[in-house]
Amino acid sequence: MSLVLAATNESALIDLRAVAKTYETDTGPVHALARVDLKIKRGEFVSLLGPSGCGKTTLMSLIAGLATPSEGEVRIDDMSIRSPYTNLGIVFQNAELLDWRTAIQNIMLQIEIRGLDVKTYLPIARKLLAQVGLKEFENKYPDELSGGMKQRVALCRALIHDPEILLMDEPFGALDAMTRDQMNADLQRIWMQSKKTAILVTHSIDEAVFMSDRVIVMSARPASVVEDLQIDLPRPRSLDVRDTPEFNEYTAHLRARFKALGVFSND
């Protein structure tokens, strides 16, 4: 029985079945998402790539159970998701650290809210901070940290309870290009160690290709899946991989795709 279950889980941890989302607003209904079918395997790194405001974030909140679909069904681990799914960690574009808590206290919020044992998890929080190079910063308040450091703390907070799924909503979108490259490399390293199922929402083609096993290309609102592209680049990928012809083949293909969708209309 458990063997059979494991087999089905292997095929798809996250399963979106004909999911659509319409928001009711004062100025009428907004179709954020139009019928998305998507399966994500356990341990896979998947990027949702599309222009800004295309409903990628909506899709993410549907997976987290923070919003309910207007049509269709979200299933995780063969269970229908109707309320917040808590076996996950989220990183938002703004780190969303609490100003009045130090770095380590911000990470421990995850533990406090879940009612887990603080003593058990404090060393884990320290270890995670050390892994992202912030060992010396555990007692710093957020306004004493740079943008990249804050995002590292937010990443630690999303991982401390060892969740099944890691959701990231444009986590590096507000960082400068060099910090962003460093964060991409670090995230890959941490992901390879922890083997989480990861979903990265991004509008950077390079970032999506560099990070992912699969890139899901989404169209403008109402969003739908336009392409499901497998990225076959060996891991671990160093930042130099972005100068290889294989990498550029992927990015060129995706850029052409967006051009055809009318996203880049300038040239």
Binding site: L66, P84, T86, G89, I90, F92, N94, E96, I113, R114
Partner: peptide, 11 residues
């Protein structure tokens, strides 16, 4: 987003 984060923790 802060409230979403808390909800994802099961708060």
């Amino acid at each position: 987003e802060s409230l979403m984060l808390l909800r994802s923790m099961g708060a």
